[in-house]
Design a protein around this nucleic acid. Structure first.
Lengths: 339, 339
DNA sequence: TTGTATGCGTTATCAA
DNA sequence: TTGATAACGCATACAA
């Protein structure tokens, strides 16, 4: 096993002091150009690479950003993640990606890990807004900048970047009403995730504006999983729930709900219009058309990184309750060639 | 900014030596149970968390695994990744995910990053087998275990875990022939990626066994991107290529190829049968049925981790030319309820 | 312009 | 059973 070459090794080989090597490699002006060149050439030849752990132990900065996402199967998250790492790379940061799977315990472990390795900042798509709030705050206090994207944290003041969820949901629900639907169901989690609340409010607004009565049995609560959404809706339909459209808060929920609808031998879109947020690939598996809110995931990712880096550069607080809004689009996805 | 609490801080507060604290926290037997309890209680109270950087600087082990994948949009990779991190977590390892986007330069940067932060091992889905081969070997020499999954590296001896690509491709092509197709196109990259070679060989085998002549103009070369695959096939069809089925080496290629077919006003599956490897969500966007090879991505991920951990535990070499084979399934994905 | 000493947070090896 | 010291790889004041 060939040990990795260190500054010490180089220093010994060249009979100079380690500090001289260290300085030379970082273009410190108090080392002669001659010496700098000589040392750099040698370091290059032997394939020297600085140990990031040691570096950031001293610098208190790692140039690493952590990205926490709920799920890899949801294309909204993977697209946003692409925006994040491409933009981060451009700016000289390395990003590492972690998945919490809608599980607060997982999220906690991931966050602590990121703290343990001293990342500079975190781009967070949180499980919910309450469970790990204290931890978010602790990390913030430790100096790790946190930017929330897609899901904001209402009762905290972390900066965030999202679409206007309320407006989008309002527009989406209106589209359904324009299509002649009046028995519109809403299905989402109710664990205090503001993004779900905003979408719920937009839904209510649209109903109200169109003088459609809100019916309790058309409002369903589910976890953000295929199974939960599927079972919840399946049971509801079997119990006689009467709907002609359904607004789903997320992609996995829509996939589960759509599956339940088809399983109940109802047709999409003839009997029930299917809607979701995120323009997610996985819905296409159902082979039916659907309404969706395209959230510009790539752009959300890019802007989230830029926002974070700005905070890092300025050393300003990342908890100033600033929310950046990215524009959205309501789309109807039918099958066949597109994009 | 509240600084993170360290062992030194605890030691000072409790008027003991840092080394005592260190030992107590790690249940070293030479510290009295009394003392251990007292110290642990205090550490807990103040929310002490060990600094992983400092730890692994000494231990030469980080308990971190790096996972490098080509693309997040391809569900095969994301499913495999789930298998990886769930299994890794079970075994007390943290995994960090990096994406190379089929770009060797990216891959190099990611690999060096992983080396720079001293990960214990890497689960690699390589860009190709030649470009960064020296780097793979260097990392291996440094003691970082590397396991290849999905794509093996033919001329090296890194352990790997894949399906039997040749057999799968043979079976897949045979299915097409059973369906009455004779003008079967093959489209894939030819940058020395063995997985593509094996699949190509399987395709050739099936043709041969069925006494179908291999036609040069039915073998197309493309990069692993939507655009490249799309343009390549579009041009071929416009130039009069005559095919009634197409075997695509990967998901993005199939997506691009399928798109080109539909754009040329040809029907899938009536005019052309579409096939791919990986059972990828993104194909569903086309809204057409397709043949696919399900590669058991979750299982590949799990077994890859277990393989890697075994190497780590035993301290055995990870380059012994061992290949683990995971079973595959040929599926026909039509739209509607499924899974 | 170069070298020396010290420290980042942790652990291993001694000595007490 | 506990404490002192050196070390991991690197960086930075300061001395030479």
């Amino acid at each position: 096993m060939k040990k990795k070459i260190t500054i010490k090794d180089i220093a010994k080989e060249m009979s100079v002091d380690p500090s001289t090597v260290s300085k030379a490699l970082r273009n410190q002006s108090d080392i002669s150009i001659e010496m700098q060149k000589k040392i750099k050439r040698f370091a290059d030849k032997v394939g020297y690479r600085p140990n990031l752990l040691a570096k950031s132990l001293i610098n208190k900065r790692s140039n690493i950003l952590g990205v926490i996402i709920p799920d890899l199967r949801i294309s909204f998250f993977s697209e946003a993640t692409r925006g994040i790492y491409e933009e981060a790379t451009k700016n000289g940061y390395e990003t590492i990606l972690l998945v919490h799977d809608e599980n607060a315990e997982n999220e906690k472990r991931k966050l602590e890990f990121l703290s343990d390795i001293n990342v500079d900042g975190i781009l967070l798509n949180a499980v919910d807004e309450t469970t790990n709030l204290d931890l978010y705050k602790r990390l913030d206090a430790e100096g790790i900048k946190i930017i929330c994207w897609d899901r904001k944290l209402k009762d905290s003041n972390f900066n965030s970047i999202t679409i206007n969820d309320k407006k989008a949901s309002f527009e989406l629900t209106n589209k359904l009403i324009e299509n002649g639907r009046r028995k519109i169901m809403f299905i989402g989690p109710n664990t205090g995730i503001p993004v779900a609340q905003d979408r719920f409010e937009g839904y209510l607004m649209a109903l109200k504006e169109n003088k459609i009565r809100v019916r309790k049995n058309l409002i369903l609560e589910t976890e953000r999983t295929f199974e939960s959404a599927h079972n919840t809706l399946y049971t509801a339909i079997q119990s006689g729930a009467d709907l002609d459209a359904i607004v789903c808060v997320g992609g996995l929920i829509a996939y589960g709900a759509g599956n339940a609808i088809l399983e109940c031998k109802l047709r999409i879109p003839e009997d029930i219009l299917l809607c979701e947020f995120g323009d997610n690939d996985i819905i296409s598996r159902l082979g039916v058309p659907f309404y969706t809110v395209n959230q510009n995931p790539y752009k959300i990712g890019q802007e989230a990184v830029n926002f974070l880096i700005k905070c890092l550069k300025n050393g300003t607080n990342s908890a100033k309750s600033i929310n950046i809004e990215v524009e959205h689009k309501i789309l109807y996805r039918s099958t066949g060639v597109q994009r």
